[in-house]
Design a protein around this nucleic acid. Structure first.
Lengths: 187, 187
DNA sequence: GCGTTTATTTGACTTTTGTCAAAAATTCTT
DNA sequence: AAGAATTTTTGACAAAAGTCAAATAAACGC
C-alpha cells in the first residue's frame, strides 16, 4: 500500500482524507503464474497496481494470441478498454510471474474522484503517460522492418527481453516467433 | 468558441468562472490547406480544437512520411508527445483541408487546470478517450493483413476514406500505397 | 538427476507485401 | 477548356516475413 501512495504522492500532495479513502478501498491480491485475472467477453471492474510480479494483456486475432502490453513492478494494469468504458472487452490479463497486486474497483475509484476532484489531476497525468506509451509503440509498429522493431525494443525496453517469452514478445512486435528467433540468431 | 464550450460542457457542467477563463485564453486560428501547424524538432506549445477542417499528424521514418492520425471536426489535435511532455517532438501537423481552429497554449491550459482543479476531470476523460482510440488502432496494426486493416478502416472510419489521400491512408495503415491501391481494385 | 513438458530454433517452402518505373486518371490553374 | 501538377493505378520483379513440421534446448516436477 505504501508503495502505491508513494507513487501517487509524487504526482501530487495527497490530503490525509484522500490517503485514508484510498487505503480503505484498495485491496491486496496475491497472484500466481498462469492465472487469468481478467477474461475477454466480460466487463472489467478492477484496476491493478503491480507491487511485484509481471503481467501481460493479450487478445485473440485470427485464432492467435496477440500480446498488447507487458506490466512490470509499479505499472498500472487492467483490461483498458473494458475498464474505462465499462463495456465487455476483448482483452485478457494473465500473470506471467507470481506477484502482489493492489486493486481498486471502478466504482470505488470513481467515488474517490467524486469526493476528491483534485485527484483527477493524478488520473489525467497517469492516463497521459500511458497514452504516450501506446502512441510511441504504434509508431514503431506502423512502418519498421521486423529487425528494426526488435532493435528498438532492445534499446527501449530491455526488461521485456529479459523476462517475457519469445512468443509473447513476437506477437507484441507484430511478427511471428520464428522470424524473431531468426533475427536474434543473426546478431 | 460556443461549439467547444458545448462539447466540454457535455462532459461536466462548467462554472461561469471556468467558462470565462477558457473564453479569455482560447484563440481562433484560420488555417489553409498545406500549412504546417507544428514542425518536428520543436516544442509544441498549442493544443487545437478543430471547429472546421481536416488535419493530420505525421512523422518521417526511413525517409518516408508516416501518418499517425487524422483529425476531423470536433477533434482535438496537437503534436501529442511534444505537447504533453513539453519536449521537442518528432511529429508534424499538417492542414489537409482549410479550416478554423480554436487553440490554447500549454501554459494557459495548465493555469486553468490549477485554478479549476475539477477541470482535470474533463482532461482525464478526453485523454482516456484518445488513449482508447490509439490502443485500438495499435491492435489493428499489430497482426492483420493489409486487407483486413483496410476493411476495418472502411467499417470504423469511413470518413477517413472519403477525405484523405490514398498515400496518407496507406501509411496510416502501415502499408504501401501500391498495396492499398491493389486491395481497393480487387473489391 | 531423469523423464516430461514447454519453449525456442532451424529448414524448406509459400505468400504477402514492398519497390521501382511508367501509365492513367484526377484535380487545379489560369 | 487546355495544360500542368498531383494523385492513383498497374506491371514486373525482389525482398521480407509467414507457415508448417521437425529438431533442439531449457525448465519443471517428482
Amino acid at each position: 500500500m505504501e508503495k502505491l501512495l508513494l507513487i501517487l504522492g509524487q504526482l501530487m500532495p495527497l490530503s490525509t482524507e484522500l490517503r485514508e479513502d484510498l487505503s480503505s478501498k484498495v485491496f491486496v491480491s496475491k497472484v500466481k503464474k498462469g492465472e487469468i485475472l481478467i477474461s475477454e467477453g466480460k466487463i472489467c471492474h478492477q484496476l491493478f497496481f503491480i507491487k511485484k510480479g509481471f503481467l501481460r494483456g493479450f487478445h485473440y486475432q485470427n485464432g492467435k494470441e496477440i500480446t498488447s502490453w507487458f506490466g512490470f513492478e509499479n505499472d498500472f494494469a487492467t483490461s483498458t478498454h473494458s475498464f474505462f468504458s465499462q463495456k465487455t472487452g476483448y482483452e485478457n490479463v494473465e500473470v506471467i510471474e507470481d506477484g502482489i497486486l493492489y486493486g481498486i474497483t471502478y466504482e470505488d475509484l470513481n467515488n474517490i474522484y467524486d469526493r476528491h476532484p483534485e485527484f483527477n489531476y493524478v488520473g489525467r497525468l497517469l492516463t497521459e503517460k500511458y497514452y504516450l506509451d501506446v502512441m510511441e509503440r504504434t509508431l514503431c509498429l506502423q512502418f519498421q522492418t521486423a529487425k528494426q522493431s526488435y532493435e528498438q525494443l532492445v534499446a527501449t525496453h530491455p526488461q521485456i527481453l529479459k523476462r517475457a517469452y519469445l512468443g509473447h514478445i513476437a506477437s507484441y512486435l507484430g511478427i511471428s516467433q520464428e522470424t524473431l528467433s531468426r533475427i536474434r540468431a543473426k546478431k
